[in-house]
Structure formats: structure tokens, C-alpha cells
Simulated assay, not measured.
Amino acid sequence: MKVPLSGPDITEREKQLVLEVLDSGQLSLGSKLEAFEAKMAAYVGRRYAIACNSGTSALHMLIRAMGIGEEDEVITTPFSFVSSSNCILYERARPVFVDIDEQSFNINPELIAKHITERTKAILPVHVFGQPANMEAIMDVAQTYGLRVIEDACEAIGAFWNGKMAGSFGDAGVFAFYPNKQMTTGEGGMIVTDDPELAALCRSLRNQGRGEDGLWLSHVRLGWNYRLDELSAALGIAQLERIEQLLGRRAEVAARYLEKLADVPGVILPVIDPRAEMSWFVFVIRLQNSLRRDFLMERLLAQGIGCRPYFPPIHLQPFYQQQFGYQQGDFQVTESVSASTLAIPFFSGLTEAQIDYVCRAIHQELAVCL
């Protein structure tokens, strides 16, 4: 049996809206983009939403829009996809890493304050795997030291912390819609904020720095082509219309994994903070130190089961080691978690037979690893 790691959930509704765009003849900066932004702002509970071509672009625009630049510092996590710190480097600022909590895999808010310097301008927490970071604690630190907060909620649409939606805590939040996400636009991202100046500036930055008057070829600042096209926006509308269905189905798949892997020796299942409502992005198991993660991964792949380490530590990526001199042991919790975690097949269309096949394979192969 072949079981892919992930897969998008596309229905006739998505196809219908995409065909509407093709029939309209307007493929960029049209009514679908405006509708998608309005629906996303309403869903998250923020005043403004600015769509763009990726979560990375959204993060980059916010770094620029907040005036973060050369020699400034932004506190963030080393356990994430690399773009959450790359976006800081784009503006020649420096990511300052803070180790993670071993249960949630999110940045440890208790360690943030001791990394703050006179150059610190912002905190960029990442809601890893769809579990929100402790945003109340993070916001307390930010307010104490006068720092901006950019929430990377790219993996956490529809998640809640203490009853408040991820992406609605900081000065701005960011979502992403790559095909493996809970909802997809193919490629795409979204900024959400309550700040009208920040929203206006990001709208300009995504469209080559065009002025707010919208005059053709009138550019008042340096910007980029970070626009989201109408076809992608149409996908986003359809996916957002049934977001609760998408999230609910993923929660069902997660529940089946939690049930079937609960008694497998050597497997540590995800731990959900009681204050958090999870939005399942991926399903990541952790293996006890006595087990060989890479051996298991090779054996699962040989049986047609998609799997992948999640995440390699950012600070140990070759580029970061070369530029900043990071070494093994600099962030011990991150490194320990990274070396022992494995993402297994997870998407809303996963069948019961596929789930059974994956769980049986894990059980059998771990027996060999012990």
C-alpha cells in the first residue's frame, strides 16, 4: 500500500470558483482576492487581512513594515521551518534563538527575557504543528519590554489558546496555505492585523510599493511582487467556507492515531496543553532515545509509507552555522526533540485502512529497533 505523507482536500466547489475566475478574464487583483481577505479577517476576528503569495512573504513584509533592520534583533525559535528566521535575515536583522518547551515544542516563554538586549525589536513565536504557543506569557514579556509581536500561525489556522484564536494576539499574525496545510491555495499566505497603518503598508509592499491611491505605475516605496493571484484566492474562499469540516476531519485522523499508537512501546505521542485547542497540521510521533529514528524512517519508506523528520534545527542548518558559528549543543531541547521526531502520513483524506497499515508498520518495525 502506498500512503503519501500529505495531500490536499479539493472538491467540486474549489473547481467551480476557479472556473469562475478563468471565465471572468481577471486573473489578478480582483473580486476573489477581496472576498478571500474579508472572509479571513472575519474568521480570525481581526480588522484587516492582506493576502500574498506565501507565508514567507507575509513574514518578510511585516519585518520591513515594522521598521526592523540592520543590527536589530528578533527573538524566535530554532525549531521551525527555516523561513521563520530567514525573513529576519532578509532585512539584515538577526534572529536570536530561544530554546523550546519539551512538551509543546514551542518557544519557552520563561527563557525569553534573558535574551532581550537594547537591540531587540520584536518577538516572533511559531505555533509549531498547530499547537499555539503560550501567547499570554509571550505578550506579557513583550509589553514589559516594549516589543512588537509577529505571530507565525502558518501551521495553526483555527487553533485557540485559552479561547482566543491563534493569529489574533500579536501586532500581526501570519497564515500560510501550502498544499500540506489544513487549507490550501496552492501557494499563498495571509497577514492579519488590527493596525490600519500596518495593513496599508503591507498592501503597498506586496504590489511593488504602489501608493495607496492605486495609480498605475505610481510607486512610492521599494516593494516586491508578493501578490496572490485570483485563482489562488478562489481556492482560498472555497477552502475557508468549509474550514471546520477540514479541521474536524484532521482531528478525527489524529484521534485514530492517538488511539492506535497509544500502547506501542517506544512511541511518545503528541502532548496537548489543556489551555490549547489544537489545529492538526501534521502528526508527529517522538521516539524514545533508545530507538533509532532514522532506521524506522527507512523501513517505513521501504513499505510505501511517507514520513519525514520534523524539524531539523534551524541553528544547525549549514548556512546558519557558517554565518553565526552555531554548534551542536547550543539549544539542547530543540536538538533532542529534532533527533527523535518523525512526521507520519497525515491529511483529511487518509482512510481507515491506510491508518491501520501505518500503525501496524510502526509497531512491527519498532519491535526490530528495540
Rank of each mutant, 00 (worst) to 15 (best):
C52V: 10
S54N: 12
Q328K: 13
R286W: 00
V21M: 07
G325Y: 12
C369H: 04
P125V: 01
A172M: 05
E352C: 00
I344L: 13
I305F: 06
Y90S: 08
A200G: 10
L231I: 11
R92I: 01
V192E: 01
L217T: 04
A166K: 06
K121G: 10
V220R: 09
S279V: 05
M165T: 04
P78Q: 07
F281A: 12
L217I: 00
P312A: 10
Q322M: 03
R148K: 15
S340L: 11
L300D: 08
E187W: 08
R221Q: 13
Q131K: 10
P345H: 07
G30M: 08
L17H: 08
Q131W: 00
E118I: 02
P8G: 06
I285G: 01
D101C: 14
F169G: 00
P8S: 11
L27H: 11
I107N: 06
L205D: 03
V126E: 08
V333M: 14
I68H: 06
A339T: 00
S168E: 09
A238I: 07
D23N: 09
L205Q: 09
F169T: 01
A367V: 04
V174G: 06
W161A: 07
S85M: 10
I123E: 04
L370R: 15
K2P: 05
T117Y: 08
C307Y: 00
A122H: 06
L231R: 14
G7M: 12
P125Y: 09
D101P: 00
I63M: 13
S348G: 15
P265T: 06
S279A: 15
P179F: 03
V284R: 03
I314K: 02
Q239L: 03
T341W: 04
D101R: 10
L33Q: 03
T341E: 13
R46H: 07
E12N: 11
L33Y: 07
A159F: 10
D356Q: 15
T185P: 01
E365Q: 12
S80G: 08
E241S: 05
L111Y: 10
F97P: 06
E37A: 05
V368W: 06
Y326K: 00
V3F: 11
D195P: 03
V128C: 12
S279E: 02
Y178S: 15
P125R: 07
T193C: 08
L350A: 02
V368H: 11
E230W: 09
F331S: 12
E259R: 12
L247P: 00
K15P: 01
P270C: 07
Q182A: 14
F347H: 14
R221P: 01
I68E: 00
Q328E: 15
K32G: 04
L111C: 02
